[in-house]
Design a protein around this nucleic acid. Structure first.
Lengths: 208, 208
DNA sequence: TTCCTTACGCTACGACCCGTAGCGTAACTG
DNA sequence: CAGTTACGCTACGGGTCGTAGCGTAAGGAA
């Protein structure tokens, strides 16, 4: 979470895991009530019933705290096998969209990404805590589609990786842009339109 | 810019247009040097050689100021006719990407979008100042492709609008996500891969 | 138990930014 | 000329930041 290496047996009073949970919960609550820009460390500390200094002992600042607080939302992401690539893609799209409907995520995600444009360590933290959790759904969906015979197994592994990155940016980017920039709902009609566009593109790429 | 209705002939001392330009220029410079989060109204005022109160007389706050400061970058967007839909799409993608390479835009765009999730008037301001300027390129590209015979003229106008919105979210979203979230470069290789994926999808939609 | 070590709560602090009020002056109009 | 609006400047209360210092709490080791 924040400690680089919590060596198993250490002397002294251990950190309160209850405080950890309370702080992250309080951070999400504060995001809902106040939004990113008005969230303050003092407010989070008050909500968590914890001293402000305790926050700073664990997180360098607001950026890191919010990333960790929002990251757990992405653990809920799942990809049940819906039987076809089209159904799986639509499932991923609707899950991303549902996540972006939550006010904690809406206000926090773009903000931390914006911060990360000037903070490499924050960018890496976001990648491992959030982006990789999303991307694994795309990789899983591809594997399934290959097992079904809907997609070819690619022999050039680096090209395959580039391809997966492209698909991921297209899916996640489109959903985020639709939700937060265009500010229009990702309903099942939009999801199916997007899915068919993407799948027709993939089918065309398979063909020639 | 900020005044709702600058009725032509007004009495009193007119607002300095030189100050307007200096302020917006100073805002971009501050974005480059400090980034969104560390930009302050006082710093902008100092750079512009203007009193802080002058800023507040024209803009409600940092959000509105930065939107206007960055909006002019999107005026540079053009879409020369490159002879085919594929070339035009690739042109748009590379232009968006070049814009997102600029540090003012990188740090400001996601930040104001994040703010707009809790501020409807800011969202509308972003839409008219930035998003619509991008979207018009997509609409222009579609018209040209239709004139060339690469795309059909759609009879259902509301479906056509939904389709254009979808394409726009896909293009802009993918480029933004690739650049700011994945933090990978949008080079011509990626642009051509993305373009062919999109065009194959569109071709498939035309067919069946 | 008694030390040792680390975590916690609390208070206080200087530094900074915010947004506004008040005032005298500058610029333009009729 | 008088009237009106914009500007620069100063000053202010209110808020957040991040840290230091201290006494206390909660574990492990001798």
């Amino acid at each position: 979470m924040n400690d680089s290496d919590p060596r198993a047996t250490r002397t002294g009073r251990p950190r309160s895991t209850a405080a950890d949970a309370a702080i992250l919960e309080a951070t999400r609550a504060s995001l809902v009530d106040l939004g990113w820009s008005k969230l303050t460390m003092s407010d989070v500390a008050n909500r968590a019933g914890v001293a402000k200094t305790t926050l700073y002992r664990r997180w360098a600042g607001k950026n890191e705290l919010v990333v960790d607080a929002v990251a757990v939302l992405f653990d809920e992401l799942e990809l049940p096998d819906r039987g076809s690539l089209a159904a799986d893609v639509q499932g991923v799209v609707l899950q991303f969209a549902a996540l972006l409907e939550r006010p904690e995520a809406r206000t926090a995600l773009m903000a931390v990404v914006a911060e990360s444009t000037r903070d490499d360590s924050l960018r890496l933290r976001i990648r491992s805590a959030i982006v990789d959790r999303q991307k694994r759904l795309v990789l899983l969906g591809r594997e399934r589609a290959q097992a079904r015979g809907e997609l070819r197994y690619e022999d050039d592994s680096s090209a395959a990786a580039r391809n997966a990155d492209l698909i991921f940016d297209v899916i996640a980017g489109a959903v985020v842009h639709r939700t937060l920039v265009s500010a229009e709902p990702v309903d099942s009609a939009w999801a199916s339109g997007f899915t068919s566009l993407l799948l027709l593109g993939l089918a065309g790429a398979q063909a020639g």
